[in-house]
């Protein structure tokens, strides 16, 4: 699995498209800002699956599962890791860095920020490769 992170508006989406030549490769692109993410299933024929908007998906997981959300999030990552190992497959996760600003006054916002940080740590540990984007330039950090 491949985790692509970095600040907002740094060209993460564009970089993934170019890096994996997605213009001419069958793939599934799941935009977490506009649609629900999904678990692996037998109908997926594409070899590349991209999940975008990890921080927003994590927010929904938090709303839905509360204190159980970390467990749910990790089991979600694990399910995709298992799927990936079932063939010549790649799962790409795109997540926005949100943890390097002011500490939010609102408790819910603070918890969300914490869960995003922990989730990214777990995800990075499970991924073979991690890149951080800055102004369109990728820095491979794992």
């Amino acid at each position: 699995m491949h985790f692509v992170s970095g600040g907002a508006f740094q060209g993460k989406r564009k970089w993934v498209k170019v890096h994996y030549s997605l213009a001419n490769k069958p793939h599934i692109w799941c935009n977490g800002y506009e649609e629900e993410w999904f678990l692996p299933n037998d109908h997926i024929m594409e070899q590349i699956v991209v999940f975008e908007g990890a921080e927003q998906w994590i927010r929904r997981m938090l709303d839905e599962h509360g204190q159980e959300s970390m467990k749910q999030i990790v089991s979600y990552f694990t399910a995709w890791k298992t799927w990936e190992m079932g063939g010549e497959r790649t799962v790409v996760w795109i997540g926005c860095e949100i943890g390097q600003g002011l500490v939010p006054l609102d408790e819910k916002e603070r918890i969300w920020r914490d869960i995003v940080g922990w989730s990214y740590q777990r995800l990075a540990a499970m991924c073979d490769r991690v890149d951080r984007l800055w102004c369109g330039i990728a820095e491979r950090i794992k």
Binding site: G7, A8, E97, Q100, G101
Partner: peptide
């Protein structure tokens, strides 16, 4: 300035 890392 770097101001992209604290969320949108």
């Amino acid at each position: 300035n770097e101001l992209f890392n604290g969320g949108v």
